[in-house]
Amino acid sequence: MTGSGAALALAIRNTDPFVAARRGDGTLLPDYLDGHRILGDPGVLAAAAAELARRIPPGADHVAGEAAAGSGLAISVSLAALDQGRRLAARTLRREPKVHGITGVLSTAVPPSSNFALVDDVAGTGACLERCTLRLRELGHHIVGAWVVVDRQNGAAERLARLGVPFAALLSIDELRTTRSN
Rank of each mutant, 00 (worst) to 15 (best):
1 M>L: 15
4 S>Q: 15
4 S>R: 14
5 G>I: 08
5 G>Y: 05
9 A>E: 11
10 L>K: 13
12 I>N: 05
16 D>S: 09
18 F>C: 04
19 V>C: 03
24 G>Y: 05
27 T>Y: 05
28 L>R: 08
30 P>L: 08
32 Y>K: 01
34 D>M: 10
35 G>C: 10
35 G>T: 08
40 G>M: 02
42 P>R: 06
49 A>C: 10
51 E>F: 01
53 A>H: 08
57 P>A: 05
57 P>Q: 02
58 P>F: 08
60 A>S: 10
62 H>Q: 07
62 H>R: 12
64 A>R: 00
64 A>S: 04
66 E>Q: 09
70 G>V: 04
70 G>K: 05
71 S>A: 11
72 G>R: 00
73 L>V: 01
74 A>P: 01
74 A>T: 06
74 A>L: 04
79 L>N: 06
80 A>F: 05
80 A>R: 02
84 Q>H: 15
89 A>I: 10
90 A>E: 05
91 R>T: 15
91 R>H: 11
92 T>Y: 08
92 T>I: 07
94 R>S: 14
94 R>K: 13
101 G>T: 11
102 I>H: 12
103 T>A: 07
103 T>V: 09
106 L>Q: 01
110 V>Y: 01
115 N>K: 02
116 F>P: 01
120 D>Q: 06
122 V>A: 01
126 G>E: 03
128 C>H: 03
130 E>L: 08
130 E>P: 02
130 E>C: 07
131 R>T: 07
132 C>S: 13
137 R>E: 15
137 R>G: 09
141 H>N: 00
143 I>F: 07
145 G>K: 00
155 G>H: 10
157 A>Q: 12
159 R>N: 12
162 R>K: 14
166 P>C: 10
169 A>S: 13
173 I>V: 14
174 D>G: 07
175 E>W: 09
178 T>A: 15
179 T>R: 13
182 N>T: 10
